[in-house]
Amino acid sequence: MIVATLCFYLFAGVAIVSGLMVVTARNPVHAVLFLILTFFNAAGLFVLLGAEFLAMALVVVYVGAVAVLFLFVVMMLDVNFQELRAGAARYMSVGALVGLALLAELALVLGGMTLGGVEVSGGALPTPPADQVHNTRALGQIIYTDLFVLFQIAGLILLVAMIGAIVLTLRSRPGVRKQKIADQLARTPEQAVEVVKVPLGGGAQ
């Protein structure tokens, strides 16, 4: 138990510190690296909560894809971050307001606020109970077994979206040079190479 508590304080502490570093670091590349560190610590917190699927998804999706994409953008674009940061003080009050609203919501949830007779923090109990089945397995059971037909229909929706994107944007323009691999492969040496006799000092025609 003590190990879990220590791990919690370690993850939480590092997450807060690296989160602060994300917004204060001078070098944007460092800021993105700190962001990745924050994600890793948040994933650790999820593991402590028993939500290992969410932890994996966080690492795969956010660290593996989103943050690396950020890093590429930051390194490849010449963005002047000092200029971007210049207006920060002006928006500080708005940011503080949003932060206060979030803090108030957190306090309400922890304070046992009820809405229409239902306790706000009292979410429905997970089905099946978490100590009987891993949540990865439970999610897979729901998405791919119980609700597999909805999963299929979602696939159909994506197909329609793809058709739509193609119908509305793809145009076949005449005169565009395209690589035709079949033509390239069908070329013979006779078509491609011309053998000429170059007279001494005369140069090729």
Binding site: L147, I153, I157, V160, A161, G164, L168
Partner: peptide, 23 residues
């Protein structure tokens, strides 16, 4: 409610594209 939503979305998405098909 979930099947309601996916059915409705499948219908709507196709209709959005159809509305603009004379692009």
């Amino acid at each position: 409610l979930m099947s309601l939503y996916v059915g409705l979305e499948l219908q709507s998405l196709a209709l959005y594209v159809l509305a603009a098909i004379r692009r």
